[in-house]
């Protein structure tokens, strides 16, 4: 549909209803059935969704196990817990899941912290951007690893089950999963590991891990 002032190219879409508008004109459209749309007017042009992907299923992200209770942590006895991340990016060409913590595991009342792990027995072997082996029960801190459950989108640095890295702290972010094309139900298991020394002050340590699934552009 077009006239001298605008062109409308769009699918017949059901799941979104609304009115994209700009100055001097108003367009009504619905979105959700046949695919992404191109909406142009005298003053603007909008492409909603990826034009080359006909799917209109939502970009979807789920996490199971969002409360990670470490229970009572005994010195030199590492505690392991896990969460599962699942991505369906049928309507987006590629995606990334970034993660970051608001702060280290901390007793808010006292400010005491469990530090991010450095992994190595004889010195730092991992950083928030580089995984390394964490095997010694005398290496302390908090970290995580990513294992592929369905697909192969975990960071490939986690070469075996001993490899971990610490969470990066906000506002920086680090990628934990990365998909290069279209896929459904790509799944990864995040294993959290915390280990403390005998000198760690007693208290209840907490923090927040943020996972954000973002489509590629």
């Amino acid at each position: 549909m077009s006239n001298d002032n605008y062109i409308i190219q769009m699918g017949n879409l059901n799941s979104i209803a609304g009115a994209p508008t700009g100055s001097g004109f108003e367009l009504n459209y619905t979105v959700g059935q046949t695919g992404p749309g191109l909406y142009t007017g005298a003053n603007f042009k909008v492409r909603a969704g990826f034009q080359y992907i006909s799917s209109i299923i939502p970009f979807r992200f789920s996490l199971t196990g969002n409360f990670i209770d470490f229970g009572s942590i005994d010195p030199t006895f590492p505690v392991l817990r896990s969460s599962t991340l699942t991505i369906s990016n049928g309507s987006a060409f590629g995606y990334q899941v970034t993660a970051f913590q608001n702060h280290n595991l901390r007793v808010d009342a006292t400010g005491q912290e469990i530090p991010p792990t450095a992994c190595g027995d004889l010195g730092p072997s991992c950083t928030p951007t580089t995984a390394g082996p964490w095997t010694s029960s005398l290496t302390y801190g908090f970290g995580y690893r990513c294992d592929n459950v369905a697909g192969a989108d975990c960071d490939s640095q986690f070469t075996n089950s001993t490899y971990f890295k610490p969470f990066i702290s906000s506002p920086a972010t680090a990628i934990v999963m990365n998909g290069v094309n279209v896929g459904r139900n790509k799944q990864a298991k995040i294993t959290y590991k915390v280990n403390i020394s005998g000198a760690q002050p007693a208290g209840l340590y907490t923090n927040i891990i943020n996972y954000i699934a973002i489509p590629k552009f």
């Binding site: 799941s15 979104i16 209803a17 609304g18 009115a19 994209p20 508008t21 700009g22 100055s23 979105v31 959700g32 992404p36 003053n43 603007f44 042009k45 909008v46 492409r47 909603a48 969704g49 990826f50 209109i56 299923i57 939502p58 970009f59 979807r60 992200f61 789920s62 996490l63 199971t64 196990g65 969002n66 409360f67 699942t86 990016n89 309507s91 987006a92 489509p215 552009f217």
Partner: peptide, 29 residues
Amino acid sequence: NAQSVDLGIYPPIFQIQTVVPNDIKLPFF
């Protein structure tokens, strides 16, 4: 299950080219 969160969004991208002034309203879910 309060220990799970499962969210979806559409569209995954908005590509907007505009001149000013303008008031653009775009629906999504």
